[in-house]
């Protein structure tokens, strides 16, 4: 295994701390889990409580690049996947996170923070299949 020159230990640690602060404030002040797939899903569901708060959290997330760009230029986002791959990826992420009841934020941050065994299993599953998928695409299919 070789280490990538793109590794950004300090920015990632600090950015992570901000994400943790956000999730911490949302549970302690609002009593809610900052899980993005759960928030999105309940806005799409027929019946859900607390829609306004959930929508406002997502609105803040949507508006964050605008706030960032007041102080610095936005970092680049490089997406290699083509149209068909993006449709497939989006469908799998939408279905999978709702069946699995969470994603990288809900299980990975909030769930592990409260020492949930379900979340630990979920994180092991999506990281495992993520590692396997990238291995297959990059090293077996050579894309």
């Amino acid at each position: 295994m070789t280490l990538s020159p793109d590794f950004t230990p300090w920015a990632s640690l600090l950015g992570g701390a901000l994400i943790g602060l956000s999730a911490g404030l949302f549970i302690l002040l609002n009593g809610r889990i900052a899980g993005i797939s759960g928030l999105l899903g309940s806005l799409l569901a027929k019946h859900a409580e607390g829609r306004a708060e959930k929508a406002l959290f997502l609105l803040g997330l949507l508006a964050s690049p605008w706030l960032w760009s007041l102080f610095a230029t936005l970092p680049g986002a490089s997406i290699q996947a083509g149209g068909a791959a993006l449709v497939l990826a989006g469908l799998l992420v939408g279905l999978g996170t709702r069946y699995g009841a969470g994603c990288t934020s809900g299980h990975g941050i909030c769930g592990l923070s409260r020492l949930s065994l379900r979340s630990l299993v979920a994180v092991a599953c999506f990281m495992g299949s993520g590692f396997a998928t990238v291995y297959i695409i990059r090293h077996l299919m050579g894309a």
């Binding site: 993005i36 949507l62 690049p65 997406i79 497939l88 990826a89 999978g96 009841a101 599953c125 998928t133």
Partner: peptide, 27 residues
Amino acid sequence: LVLGSVVFGVGWGIAGLCPGPAVALLL
């Protein structure tokens, strides 16, 4: 829980996007 999370990881591995960053990048 297990199958849903495995399916999510496959989608994540295809595009490198999960729900949080996707919403943050949308606009």
